[in-house]
Amino acid sequence: MDVASMIAINNRNMITMMNALQEVNHIVLINDNGKEYEDMSGSMLDQYIGKECVVSLFNEVGAIKGKLMDADSQWVKVETPKKGTQLINRNMIRNITFSL
């Protein structure tokens, strides 16, 4: 067997293993023009969509108060009465508190 065939088989095995791991962990990576996205369906935040919340950030003393509208693997969308819609990077969120 030549080197090119061995590399092709190795790459195919690696892709098969990655697909199996993604299915087990319920993560779907979609490659679109070289970019990878995580499908966060089933995220913990899904059950809180439409509820009032307070988002505390690592870099600010204050907090963002509003209604949780959407969330994905990178951003959280909050509709606030004063500043309108705000997109918050998930890496900057310290915690989210929901009203009872």
Rank of each mutant, 00 (worst) to 15 (best):
residue 75 W to Q: 04
residue 60 E to I: 00
residue 30 I to G: 09
residue 67 K to N: 11
residue 27 I to A: 05
residue 71 A to H: 10
residue 56 S to N: 11
residue 14 M to Y: 10
residue 84 G to V: 09
residue 12 R to Y: 15
residue 60 E to Q: 09
residue 37 Y to G: 00
residue 41 S to Q: 15
residue 27 I to R: 04
residue 77 K to S: 08
residue 87 L to D: 12
residue 100 L to N: 14
residue 48 Y to I: 00
residue 66 G to R: 01
residue 55 V to D: 13
residue 44 M to Y: 11
residue 86 Q to A: 05
residue 63 A to I: 00
residue 92 M to R: 10
residue 26 H to C: 05
residue 91 N to P: 03
residue 7 I to F: 15
residue 80 T to S: 08
residue 19 N to F: 04
residue 56 S to K: 03
residue 97 T to R: 01
residue 80 T to R: 03
residue 90 R to E: 09
residue 45 L to E: 11
residue 16 T to L: 13
residue 86 Q to G: 00
residue 25 N to M: 08
residue 49 I to Q: 05
residue 91 N to F: 14
residue 52 E to V: 02
residue 34 G to V: 14
residue 95 N to L: 02
residue 23 E to C: 04
residue 24 V to F: 14
residue 22 Q to D: 14
residue 42 G to I: 02
residue 86 Q to V: 06
residue 13 N to P: 03
residue 93 I to K: 01
residue 21 L to D: 12
residue 23 E to T: 06
residue 25 N to L: 10
residue 78 V to K: 05
residue 28 V to W: 04
residue 90 R to P: 06
residue 58 F to H: 13
residue 40 M to L: 11
residue 55 V to Y: 13
residue 32 D to N: 05
residue 71 A to S: 15
residue 59 N to C: 02
residue 31 N to S: 06
residue 36 E to Y: 12
residue 20 A to R: 04
residue 17 M to L: 15
residue 11 N to I: 07
residue 85 T to C: 06
residue 66 G to H: 04
residue 36 E to F: 12
residue 98 F to R: 00
residue 89 N to C: 05
residue 56 S to G: 03
residue 92 M to L: 13
residue 37 Y to R: 01
